[in-house]
Design a protein around this nucleic acid. Structure first.
Lengths: 321, 321
DNA sequence: CTGAAAGCGCTTACAG
DNA sequence: CTGAAAGCGCTTACAG
């Protein structure tokens, strides 16, 4: 339980001053410290297992190398992946991430009371926008690009268009929309694109939840002018659509085609496997963190839009004659 | 972009000394500072929007109120939920969490090089144990309770026994085991319990992945002494078993019963819905963090084992005569 | 009841 | 090329 060594201990062992240790270990010794001295310092630091005290460095520099990551929920596989990508980039640059779940769409997200030492904010998928972060640099992801902050997004419109093109190509002329009852940019975009096709014959809203989606899908499917294809805002909603179809004795995809969005694990666990849009979630997190670090370096990163990929599986087929 | 106020600024505005501000705001003024003075300080702090600089406090106190959370992957819904529970408790106590993904089962987990300011460690589901954290207090979760560190666990054995009891009650005498090819405590326990039943007629290992599970399930089901029930280490593996059964023209549950473990979203997205064990993941995270905070307070928390709950759905039925 | 002062461990301008 | 020194913003023992 011996106390952790400080730069002063290293200096004593190396036979130099504490400031020299600091210089050498910060990599700022170039041309200012004799190579042998630098060697001795590094050797002593290694022997003692010295690691700089971050609290002291932060206090001195006024920066913390910590970023706040605001997400609606970590429980969704998508956000786990986004976090993973963001964390990788942060770590490579010596930054830490503090995660702050914020699932209230009606209110602007605010900094948690106990986080006052933050260099920047990454805010994901917030219905209510962001407030109360003062001058802290911010990058939004999966969020309305009209927001003044730099944004990193999935190309949601492009993904939805890929789906409608795919369905139109199969011959579908009557689409139903199972929309997520979540008031955020990404779902607004899905709805708009579908409306623009002119092929929409019905839309039901539901929570992102299998049981809720099943009920909504029943309302959509159990009527005379039944859509020949059901476009779902999310893979989980598609799972509910499958259940409704089965309940009504309809075969997927023979009697009704179903599409999802996200390509989470559920998509390939379903039977038949789900035609959906694969979103590069980990890449989104990485790009967003990179953009934030650019901002911290004083640059103005451009808005980014990452394309998804249409994954055609067994849940879509030509409509029945 | 005015500079952030310090306790010195608050002192100036309140007309007191900096030390008095510190005392009042730390809640240690009781009987040492006149009530009016305390009022004035709090008022000034509020007006200026003062919040203490954590780096300075940490440096002074030698503590960081930060906990390192080592997890195999955040992408799994289970760990997202565990994190959510842990974060809630941490926040209530003014602690932050730094997440450190560690997915190498063969090597003991070590502290990431860039994290040196940690008060404690929460280590989850590690095959290789933990090393290199020195004297930092540690609590392990979903891990071998034989580890010397205090542990917080799911009652995996109890959950598996609930499944075998359920299947035995339905009349199953030949069980197959689709085992996760992951070398951690939780999966060892599942295998042991199943072996002890004496009803096991076959076991196949596979990655926790639908496609891999499908292949393993085919090996298990496509033979003369076919098991009447397939016990899966994980809901996702069960999804693969469904696919294999369908491929072989077997109906679930008429021709073969299938069980999962975890009750993640997939379980109720499947058709028929999956009989499985629901694990209190969020509660596990909360209990683990509470135990770690107890350790930090100098106490020795007891080992904890949280029971799961058998959720009987449509994937299990009596075996065919 | 209140304040002056020391000191946590760094970084960096400055002096030599 | 190297060191003495200031100072980041706190907490807390000590003096009054």
């Amino acid at each position: 339980m011996s106390k952790r060594p400080t730069s002063r201990d290293v200096a004593r062992v190396a036979g130099v001053s504490q400031s020299t240790v600091s210089l050498v270990l910060a990599g700022k010794a170039e041309g200012r410290v004799k190579p042998e001295t630098g060697q001795a310092v590094r050797e002593a630091a290694r022997r003692l297992g010295y690691r700089p005290n971050l609290a002291a460095r932060n206090l001195r520099l006024g920066r913390t190398r910590t970023v706040l990551f605001v997400v609606p929920t970590l429980v969704s596989p998508i956000f786990g992946a986004v976090y993973t990508g963001a964390a990788r980039v942060a770590r490579d640059r010596g930054f830490g991430i503090v995660v702050h779940p914020w699932d209230d769409d009606a209110t602007p997200a605010r900094s948690p009371v106990d986080i006052e030492a933050i260099d920047g904010v990454l805010a994901s998928s917030l219905g209510g926008g962001v407030a109360g972060f003062g001058d802290v640099p911010i990058v939004v992801l999966d969020n309305d690009p009209a927001d003044p902050a730099p944004s990193v997004n999935f190309d949601v419109a492009g993904g939805m268009r890929a789906i409608t093109r795919h369905l139109a190509g199969l011959g579908h002329r009557r689409l139903g929309h199972l929309a997520a009852a979540v008031d955020t940019w990404t779902f607004h975009v899905r709805a708009e694109v579908l409306t623009e096709t002119g092929a929409l014959t019905g839309r039901e809203h539901c929570a992102i939840d299998v049981a809720a989606a099943r009920e909504a899908a029943l309302a959509l499917l159990d009527r005379p002018d039944r859509p020949t294809a059901v476009v779902c805002d999310d893979d989980l909603i598609a799972a509910g659509a499958y259940k409704a179809a089965r309940h009504l004795g309809l075969d997927v995809p023979r009697d009704v085609s179903v599409t999802g969005f996200d390509d989470i694990l559920v998509a390939s666990a379903l039977e038949p496997e789900l035609t959906t849009i694969r979103l590069p979630a980990e890449r989104l997190g990485a790009r967003a963190m990179a953009a934030l670090l650019e901002r911290l370096d004083g640059h103005a990163p451009p808005d980014v839009s990452l394309p998804g990929e249409l994954i055609v599986r067994g849940s879509t087929a030509p409509p029945r004659r």
